[in-house]
Structure formats: structure tokens, C-alpha cells
């Protein structure tokens, strides 16, 4: 079942396309991170998906229901959106939370217990009577999350939940997101890839308003294992990646490798890179610019994506099914704690 379906969404600002999404479908229960550089259209995509911003063309369906006007308020009821810099109404946090759940046919008692529950969960019980406008930025983020979650929407959309936030608040937030019921759909944007890797099971990259086929990095879930001169990180099938830094033995880590830092060659070559793998080209994707993304299958559960220039591609004469070698230095490895 699809939670969100966006078709042919286009939005322009001053004749410049700021969002141009042919098709984007998000499954119910999926946890989706939207990444991309500043100005790539992340916020616009999220507000359009949250039915708060109208695109110039295109349609949005929520749980299969088209969001046309007659139903927009009902449809929007499934959605909870949190802005990057949330606005708080005048009055106490309690009042802000009450506003979010009043008029939903929830009894007074249930409202109070919900406020209790979510304020407690986000560590805001002591500040319920204060205005969120007097909060620290971390408290404000947590308050905004409480206000969004308290409605228990089936689809949560959050714009940069981890910005302007202290580490304690970030931990609370991460925990909250991890503990969302399984049937909740989550879409959030972030500029910090480690949050995307940790919390999302799908990453959407936006580039100039378009959904890019490029996943920004190669991401793996690998288990650390101590060796003589550092660690090796192992896939389930046993493929090994060398990493010189400090890790905890036996622990699973999220590891990423930037495709720009991966080299490809037709023959095995001598390089300073500690990690070299032989594989088969599975997919070649053109981005429309002068670079190409090549997916190389190097054994079960270990695919590496490599960026190459058009010219390099031609000179190497590579095609799908060809045998290649790929190499990266251990400094290209990012381990996300």
C-alpha cells in the first residue's frame, strides 16, 4: 500500500523550476530521508507532500486518496508536518499541544493523557506551562515534535528535524523516531547523512528540484572485526573492508563510501588504496551532466557505485556485464556512530 504518491509535480519560482518530480511513491511504513544540497528543493518537496504548498501542476495522493479540494482537509488529517523552524502559537506549550488535538473528537481526559504522554516522552513535562517562544532551540524542536506526534498522524513529514539542536535533544529525537509504530510512514529531510543512514530505509536525493537516481554514497551495514593493524568490516557474505580507526569488536556499523572516491580499472592495478574488489558492471546511469554512475556487483550484498566522467567511460570502453576492478582508500570510509 502506498502512503504517498506524487505524480508530475512541478513548481516554478520566477520561471525557475524549483521542484520537478515525475513520480515518487512512498510505501506505508517506509522511513524515507530526503537529502540534497541547499536549495535542491527538499523543503518544497516536503510541503507539497504535506499538502501545504500547491504545485503548479501534478497530483498528490495520500493512502490512495487524491488530495483535491473537497477532501483536502480530511486528507491532510492523515499528515503531520513539522517545519524546520516551527512556529508556536501564543500561550503555553500545553495550549499549543491542546490546539493540535482539539476538534478531533478526542475527549478532554484523553487529551490530557496524550499531552502527558508526549510531553513525557520528549522530556517537556516541566515546561508545559511555559511559552515555547521562551524555549531553547533544542526544547523548541522537541516541543514541535511533540505537537506533531500528539496527533498520531499516519504519515509524518519533518523538515530538518536535527538542525539547531543540542546532542541530548538529538538523542531523544532519534529514539522517538526509532520507536515510532511500524505502520507509521516517515519522511524527513536532513543535510546530515549519518541521520539518514541511521534512521531511514530509503534515501531520496534531490538535485536542482529533481529526484536524482544517485544515492549520494555507497552505504553498508557492516560488522566490525579486529585485525592486527586495525579493523575489518565484514558483510554478511564475508566480504571484507579494511578500516584503520577505532571500532567496537562485533558491533554492526553503518558505513558509507563516496562514489567520487572510488576508482575503476579494467585490470587489477597497484595503488595505495587498501580496498580493491573485482566485480561485474550491473547498471550504467547517466545523470544528464558529464558524469556517469556505474554500479559494480562485487559479490553478494556488496555493490559499489562509482562515478566516472563520460570521457573515462569511453576510454575504458566499459559496458554492462563487463568485468572491472574498483578501489578505494580507507580514508574514503565514513563510519556513522
Amino acid at each position: 500500500m502506498k502512503a504517498l504518491e506524487l505524480q508530475n509535480i512541478r513548481k516554478t519560482h520566477n520561471d525557475r523550476a524549483i521542484l520537478d518530480v515525475k513520480s515518487l511513491e512512498i510505501e506505508k511504513g517506509q522511513r524515507v530521508a530526503v537529502v540534497g544540497p541547499n536549495g535542491s528543493g527538499k523543503t518544497t518537496l516536503l510541503t507539497v507532500a504535506a499538502l501545504l504548498d500547491k504545485p503548479d501542476t501534478g497530483s498528490v495522493k495520500v493512502h490512495g486518496e487524491p488530495a483535491d479540494w473537497r477532501r483536502i482537509e480530511k486528507v491532510r488529517g492523515h499528515l503531520g508536518y513539522m517545519a524546520q523552524e516551527p512556529y508556536f502559537f501564543r500561550g503555553s506549550l500545553q495550549k499549543n499541544l491542546e490546539f493540535a488535538i482539539s476538534g478531533n473528537g478526542i475527549s478532554k481526559n484523553d487529551r490530557l493523557s496524550r499531552i502527558e504522554k508526549y510531553a513525557g516522552r520528549l522530556g517537556l513535562k516541566d515546561v508545559l506551562n511555559r511559552s515555547p517562544r521562551t524555549f531553547s532551540s533544542g526544547e523548541r524542536k522537541r516541543a514541535a515534535i511533540a505537537r506533531t506526534l500528539i496527533r498520531e498522524p499516519s504519515i509524518l513529514i519533518m523538515d530538518e528535524p536535527f538542525t539547531f539542536i543540542d546532542s541530548a535533544s538529538a538523542a531523544v529525537l532519534e529514539d522517538t523516531i526509532k520507536n515510532l509504530p511500524e505502520d507509521r510512514t516517515l519522511v524527513f529531510s536532513t543535510h546530515d547523512l549519518s541521520h539518514a543512514y541511521k534512521l531511514a530505509d530509503r534515501i531520496i536525493t534531490l538535485q536542482s528540484g529533481k529526484v536524482s537516481p544517485w544515492t549520494p554514497e555507497n552505504v553498508f551495514r557492516l560488522t566490525a572485526s579486529r585485525t592486527d593493524d586495525g579493523y575489518e568490516l565484514l558483510t554478511e557474505a564475508g566480504t571484507s573492508v579494511y578500516f584503520p580507526g577505532d571500532l567496537e569488536d562485533g558491533k554492526e556499523y553503518i558505513v558509507s563510501v563516496n562514489p567520487n572516491e572510488v576508482l575503476a580499472s579494467k585490470q587489477p592495478i597497484e595503488t595505495s588504496a587498501r580496498n580493491s574488489y573485482n566485480g561485474e558492471i550491473q547498471k550504467i546511469e547517466t545523470s544528464g551532466t558529464r558524469t556517469v554512475l556505474v554500479t559494480v556487483h562485487c559479490g553478494s550484498g556488496f555493490q559499489l557505485r562509482v562515478t566516472l566522467t563520460d570521457r573515462a567511460m569511453k576510454e575504458l570502453g566499459l559496458g554492462v556485464g563487463d568485468d572491472v576492478w574498483v578501489h578505494f582508500k580507507s580514508t574514503a570510509i565514513h563510519v556513522h556512530q
Binding site: 501545504l52 482537509e73 491532510r76 503531520g80 517545519a83 512556529y87 490546539f99
Partner: peptide, 21 residues
């Protein structure tokens, strides 16, 4: 603040209640 309306709507309130807010 331009976020007032969006905040109300994002919290699932009806349009009339959003105007009142």
C-alpha cells in the same frame, strides 16, 4: 509570521479554525 497558517493546517485543523487561530 507567514508560518501561522501553515502551522495550523499542518496540525490538521480545518481552514476556518486556522483563520480563527
Amino acid at each position: 509570521d507567514p508560518r501561522i497558517m501553515a502551522t495550523s493546517l499542518a496540525l490538521g485543523t480545518g481552514r476556518l479554525r486556522a483563520y480563527a487561530a
